[in-house]
């Protein structure tokens, strides 16, 4: 990492640490949302940016993590820590099952199968009313002790997401991540080097699912609720938009994308009820005018 980059990251870290503490509860909540979605978008970009796998069902794992927390706390009275720990586990287990079948397919067919599984989870969440509350979702989740204070919870979320993103950074720069990029470029070539590429992609899918589940769990504990809409197909566009907005080929791209996206959503929907119209227009403009994303680089390289 170059010196200027290190400097930028330090300034960003300091801003993240201090800035939201001076804001009111509303903006602290928004800041938490931005952090959580940054992690969510990063987990998605592990699949798309690094692995070349366009999942159109990534919201499933965010939602499953959230439901994991919700069901454990509201229906089974599990303690906070256990529930939060369960979020990535539940998501990873589901991702393992879905990924097992999905990584056999590529391109648009991979997208369609991940999508089909997401809709399967969505309809189950909608129909299994006893556990999930159906349409009404699960509400009234509470955080223990000092975490009730949004400012403290913000710092808690900042700590967890920073840890998770740091871990992701190590992963993409480890042989695992290098090999994943090579698979994205030319899977057949990697196969003939002796790598079980399908297993490699499968593991990637599980890891991405786990991080998305963690994000979902953190978010459920921020809002105190879980709704089936988080699992719906329109929700699966969110991580794609954030990742593309920031730049698929830059490690920090999805973080920038998530912050810009959450910021725009907050500001615009504060002024008009037609946020979807604006979002749609932004998406179309992004695709046509800025396909490299905000942090897009000329060389088109990932993670350096």
């Amino acid at each position: 990492m170059s010196r200027t980059k290190l400097g930028l990251w330090s300034v960003a870290a300091l801003l993240f640490l201090v800035a939201p503490l001076g804001l009111g509860a509303f903006w602290q909540f928004i800041a938490i949302e931005a952090l959580v979605f940054a992690l969510y978008a990063m987990s998605f970009n592990l699949l798309l940016g690094y692995g070349g796998m366009l999942s159109f069902g990534h919201a499933a794992y965010f939602g499953l993590g959230a439901y994991g927390v919700g069901i454990l706390m509201a229906k089974l009275s599990a303690p906070f820590w256990l529930a939060l720990l369960a979020a990535p586990v539940v998501a990873a287990v589901s991702a393992a099952a879905v990924g097992y079948f999905s990584v056999r397919l590529t391109g648009i067919y991979f997208a369609m199968l991940t999508f089909a599984f997401q809709m399967l989870f969505f309809t189950v969440a909608l129909k299994a009313t006893v556990l999930t509350g159906g349409d009404d979702g699960i509400v009234g989740l509470t955080r223990p002790g000092i975490l009730v204070d949004p400012a403290v919870y913000y710092l808690f979320v900042l700590f967890i997401t920073a840890l998770a993103i740091g871990l992701l950074y190590r992963m993409v720069n480890a042989p695992f991540g290098q090999t994943l990029r090579a698979i994205r470029d030319n899977a057949r070539r990697v196969q003939h080097l002796g790598v079980h590429t399908r297993a490699h992609c499968w593991l990637t899918f599980v890891i991405a699912g786990a991080f998305a589940g963690l994000a979902g769990g953190l978010f459920a504990l921020s809002t105190g609720s879980v709704f089936p809409g988080w699992l719906d197909w329109t929700a699966s566009a969110t991580p794609i938009v954030m990742a593309v907005l920031g730049g698929l080929r830059v490690f920090a791209g999805p973080i920038a994308g998530a912050f810009v996206f959450v910021g725009l959503e907050t500001v615009i929907s504060g002024h008009t009820e037609y946020w979807p119209l604006f979002m749609g227009t932004i998406i179309i403009a992004l695709v046509l005018l800025l396909p490299g994303g905000i942090l897009g680089t000329r060389s088109g390289r990932v993670g350096h």
Binding site: N173, P175, F176, G177
Partner: peptide
């Protein structure tokens, strides 16, 4: 190839 933590 599976190593997730080393510096490639």
């Amino acid at each position: 190839s599976w190593n997730v933590l080393a510096w490639a």
